[in-house]
Design a protein around this nucleic acid. Structure first.
Length: 730
DNA sequence: GTAGGGTTAG
């Protein structure tokens, strides 16, 4: 053969020299059959060889090994290679140690024997040893690597995902003129795809002179696994156009492409294609099909196929488990889990993840604990990621709960003590601070989140913007909104636009808010028009209000808040005709405003109050207390804000009830009667708190020296010493 | 007489 030039990476020895030196004088010892050593054909059909293949345990193998040593068969390269193959690849051999020991005993392994060992390591858990063996082979074996060596070597490179070493092999293949061998080239296609070099894989694929079915399969699989489903399906079509008959392996990838596209129709077509063309339905193909049916939403067809399958394995059962879990049928999912002869780590992870994803952290955590107690399986990387998610999920819930219950300190405590924080934990803390009016602190957390290398998502930005909104941080709001796409790659959604309109509008920048809405690239949802309308109410702009109202009602004809807001704006400007017209509209469309309702928890039970509520057992005491409060307030100069009693329909229906009968006042009065300082009075209201109730609450917090925590529809108000945490901006 | 391609959780 031609002299081999060296590559810069690994040099191939000049094999022409070796040939004459090594091969002829490699026998100095003698055994009975040793004279036959060179006559390899002589042993090819030796009866012992068929015995090797029938071995079912290590003891039998060792017996044959001993026998081969006795009769000299051990020194026949072909025979000893068989021994190595079986001892490394047979199902009962757990490690390559034995095969390696056998190999080390061979005085002059030939190329065939070297290839055998490289093959064994390539499919072992330590594929890097293939490369070590290869470098030894280059120096000790008289023959250069051949077309059989490279598929094994390239496979090792694939297993290692080592692009560099694979490229080196590719170079050697070219220099050794092996670059027309379909086996070698197919391995290269697979290798480049494994390393994510789809372009390179395709280049090699096109260069295969005589493509066989494996060539096509390798390329189709490469596309399918890289989420290029369209390309995979196109190649499948071209394969047929070129009259290459697809086989069962082809169909696995084709089905998998359908699954990725969530294309049930195409999946069904492929199913019938398989039946029409008599393609063998093996277990793996059936499993791929099950996966397609469950993921594409046809649990029925999956079940039908599952029942027909002659053979099922843990993958089949896991696929069904996931299918049922994702449609909420956890009992059935659990049954599939229990029906497994033995649950592998994937099965555990599937069920844990299914619980986690449906928000059932408790079940997920319980299963995780059960897994830790299991003797057969150990949690792996995926499990730990799930466990982390479960923990983060619980942490997020706790932060959210404490924040919404008004105990921001406790929320912060949970946040600080959590070891792992994912994007949702950070976001929940930002939201918590935001709803308590601590916009600066929320922004600070946002900055720290990025220092911790956690990438913000759309939820994070909603919370950041909302925090800016509640704290009147207009500049900051603009800044973060404008950074969303260019800096963070997150396309603003309608809710982000709505937040921005709220920020601008609430701050009185009505014109800017209006322009902002006009320039929106997405169509403004009801939330955007609602925010604009609310801003018009606060800052008094009839024309813009009517504009926003028209759009809002178009989207949500039954939105009672819209009618109330516009009616209030009319009332503010004395436009009584408008008020009357709106009231008529509301009557005609059967629109009723949501009644204001405040709740307070005392002694473990929740007490609800509506406007002018008379149903509470302690109503007499409550109204007496209310009178007393108002008397004390008036003595300090308090004047009820009549704008809330006049002609407008406030969030509470003040037409029939006096201002002081607002539900939050009743709830506060009850709180003063039934609880003692320093326990704060905690109230939750379904609507936005009105201006009068807000000033009353501030005064009570001072006169009665009580903290009042009031959560309204949009945020928290923390009244203390005569002031509110919202700084009167809400 | 050596070889290559495929399914489930994240």
């Amino acid at each position: 053969m031609a002299t081999v030039t060296t590559t810069p990476i690994i040099s191939l020895p000049n094999h022409q020299h070796h040939h004459h030196n090594t091969k002829p004088n490699n026998k100095t010892t003698t055994t009975t059959n040793y004279n036959n050593y060179n006559n390899e054909r002589y042993f090819a059909n030796h009866p012992v060889l068929s015995l090797i293949e029938q071995c079912s345990n290590t003891t039998q193998l060792k017996q044959i090994h001993a026998h081969m040593l006795r009769i000299g068969l051990f020194f026949d390269p072909y025979s000893v290679s068989k021994l190595i193959t079986v001892s490394s690849l047979a199902p009962f051999s757990t490690s390559l140690d034995y095969a390696r020991k056998v190999f080390d005993q061979i005085p002059q392994p030939n190329l065939y024997t070297w290839n055998t060992l490289i093959r064994a390591y390539a499919s072992s858990s330590d594929p890097i040893h293939s490369l070590f063996i290869f470098t030894q082979m280059l120096y000790h074996c008289p023959d250069p690597p051949n077309k059989f060596s490279f598929p094994f070597l390239i496979k090792a490179a694939s297993e290692l995902s080592d692009l560099f070493i694979g490229q080196v092999f590719h170079g050697m293949v070219v220099k050794l003129s092996l670059d027309t061998d379909v086996f070698v080239l197919n391995s290269l296609v697979h290798f480049y795809a494994t390393c994510g070099e789809l372009g390179q894989a395709y280049k090699v694929f096109l260069m295969i002179p005589k493509k066989d079915v494996v060539s096509w399969n390798s390329m189709i699989t490469a596309f399918a696994q890289a989420d290029y489903s369209e390309e995979a399906l196109e190649l499948f079509q071209r394969m047929q156009a070129e009259s290459m008959m697809p086989n069962d392996v082809t169909m696995v990838s084709v089905i998998s492409a359908c699954t990725k596209k969530l294309n049930l129709k195409l999946g069904r077509w492929v199913h019938s294609f398989i039946e029409k063309n008599d393609i063998r339905m093996n277990l793996i193909l059936s499993n791929a099909m099950l996966d397609m049916y469950t993921k594409c939403g046809s649990l029925e067809e999956a079940k039908k196929l599952f029942d027909k399958m002659p053979e099922k394995d843990v993958v089949s059962l896991t696929t069904m488990l996931v299918g049922y879990a994702q449609s909420g049928e956890f009992d059935t999912a659990q049954q599939f889990f229990n029906s497994m002869p033995s649950q592998d780590i994937t099965a555990w992870n599937s069920l844990i993840s299914a619980y986690e994803q449906s928000g059932r952290s408790k079940e997920a955590l319980a299963l995780f604990h059960e897994l830790q107690l299991s003797k057969n399986v150990k949690p792996d990387q995926v499990t730990l990621k799930q466990g982390l998610k479960v923990n983060c999920h619980l942490t997020t819930s706790l932060i959210d709960m404490y924040a919404k219950c008004g105990d921001l300190e406790k929320a912060l405590e949970v946040f600080r003590s959590s070891e792992q924080k994912d994007v949702y934990v950070w976001s929940a803390m930002i939201a918590g601070l935001g709803m308590h009016g601590r916009g600066r602190d929320a922004i600070d957390i946002f900055a720290r989140m990025q220092e911790a290398k956690v990438k913000p998502n759309a939820v994070t930005f909603t919370n950041v913007l909302s925090a800016c909104n509640h704290a009147k941080l207009v500049e900051e709001g603009r800044l973060y909104f404008n950074q969303m796409l260019p800096v963070y790659g997150i396309t603003p959604q309608v809710k982000h636009y709505a937040c921005m309109v709220d920020i601008l509008g609430r701050a009185g920048l009505l014109e800017e808010a209006d322009k902002f809405v006009e320039k929106m690239p997405v169509s403004p949802g009801a939330s955007v028009w609602g925010a604009l309308l609310a801003a018009c109410k606060t800052h008094g702009n009839v024309e813009l209000a009517e504009h926003a109202f028209t759009h809002l009602i178009e989207l949500e004809p039954q939105n009672h808040g819209a009618y109330v807001l516009l009616s209030n704006i009319y009332a503010k400007f004395g436009l009584w005709d408008g008020v009357t017209k709106l009231r008529k509209l509301m009557r005609d469309f059967g629109i009723q405003k949501e009644p204001g309702c405040s709740s307070i928890e005392v002694g473990g039970s929740v007490h609800e109050f509506l406007v002018g509520d008379n149903s509470h057992p302690l109503r007499k005491k409550i109204y007496l207390k209310l009178d007393e409060i108002l008397l004390r307030l008036k003595s300090t100069g308090y004047v009820p804000n009549k704008s809330h009693v006049l002609q407008d329909i406030e969030e509470e229906d003040v037409q029939d009830h006096a201002l002081y009968l607002h539900s939050e006042k009743l709830a506060i009065a009850y709180g003063l009667i039934s609880t003692r300082s320093p326990v704060p009075i905690r109230i939750v209201k379904n609507l936005r708190v009105c201006g009068d109730c807000h000033s009353v609450a501030k005064l009570i917090s001072k006169l009665y020296d009580r903290e009042i925590l009031l959560r309204d529809r949009y945020r928290f108000h923390h009244f203390r010493g005569g002031d509110c945490s919202c700084m009167d901006y809400w």
